[in-house]
Simulated scan of single mutants.
Amino acid sequence: MGVIAVAQHPLIGYLVWAVLFGATFAWEGLALAGAMGVPTLSDAVRAVMRYPAGRWVLFALWLWFGWHFFVRGWHFLLRDP
């Protein structure tokens, strides 16, 4: 049995995710408070979903995100017996 290496997670990656989530919550908070006239995220998605091309683009983004976030790094299904 070999030594199992533990992945090193850089702090910058966590910082980027924290900023993205913080910006999303700030946007939604401003929109719900009625400040500055920004639309809510559901309003933006509804405007995109109004058109068939927008539905296909959102579906493609959903597939891409799901693949890269949930499936790409999993090796237990592909492991040699």
Rank of each mutant, 00 (worst) to 15 (best):
L32H: 10
R50W: 04
A35P: 00
L20W: 10
M49N: 07
A47M: 04
G66L: 13
Y14F: 08
I12C: 00
V45M: 08
W74Q: 06
A53F: 05
L30E: 04
G73W: 01
R46K: 11
W27Y: 06
L11N: 05
P81V: 13
W27I: 01
A53P: 00
L63H: 07
W27L: 10
D43F: 03
S42C: 03
V48E: 01
H68I: 13
E28F: 02
F21K: 11
D80E: 11
V38H: 01
E28R: 01
A44W: 05
A31N: 05
V45L: 14
S42L: 13
L15S: 09
P10N: 07
L61D: 10
E28G: 05
E28L: 04
F69K: 14
F76W: 14
P10L: 08
W17I: 14
G2R: 14
M49I: 02
F65T: 15
F25K: 09
S42K: 12
L15R: 07
A35T: 04
G29Y: 05
R50K: 10
G13D: 12
L77V: 04
G54V: 01
T40S: 15
W62L: 15
A44S: 06
W67Y: 15
G73A: 06
W27T: 00
V16C: 07
M36W: 12
L61R: 03
V6P: 00
V57E: 01
A23Q: 12
L58C: 07
W67F: 15
M1L: 08
G29Q: 05
H9R: 08
L61T: 08
V19C: 12
W56E: 08
G13H: 03
G54D: 02
P39V: 05
F59R: 10
T40M: 04
G22C: 11
P10C: 06
A60E: 01
P10S: 09
V57I: 15
F59C: 13
G54H: 01
A5S: 12
Y14C: 05
W62R: 10
G29H: 06
G22S: 09
P52F: 03
R50Y: 03
R46D: 13
W17S: 14
Y14Q: 11
L77K: 02
A26V: 14
R46E: 09
L20P: 03
W67E: 09
Y14A: 09
H9I: 11
I4F: 10
A44M: 14
F65N: 14
F76Q: 13
S42D: 13
F76L: 14
G54S: 02
A5T: 10
W67L: 14
A7G: 07
P39M: 03
P10K: 05
I12Q: 07
L30H: 02
W27H: 14
A5H: 09
V19L: 15
W74E: 07
F69G: 07
W56F: 13
G13K: 07
A60N: 03
L20T: 13
T24R: 09
I4T: 14
A47N: 05
V45G: 00
W56G: 12
V57G: 05
Q8R: 09
P81Q: 10
L11A: 11
V48S: 00
A7C: 08
G22H: 08
F70W: 15
A47L: 07
L41W: 06
F65R: 15
G34Q: 04
W64I: 11
V71Y: 12
F25M: 15
L20D: 12
L58W: 02
D43T: 11
L20R: 14
Q8W: 03
V71F: 14
M36K: 06
A7R: 10
E28K: 00
I12T: 09
A31E: 02
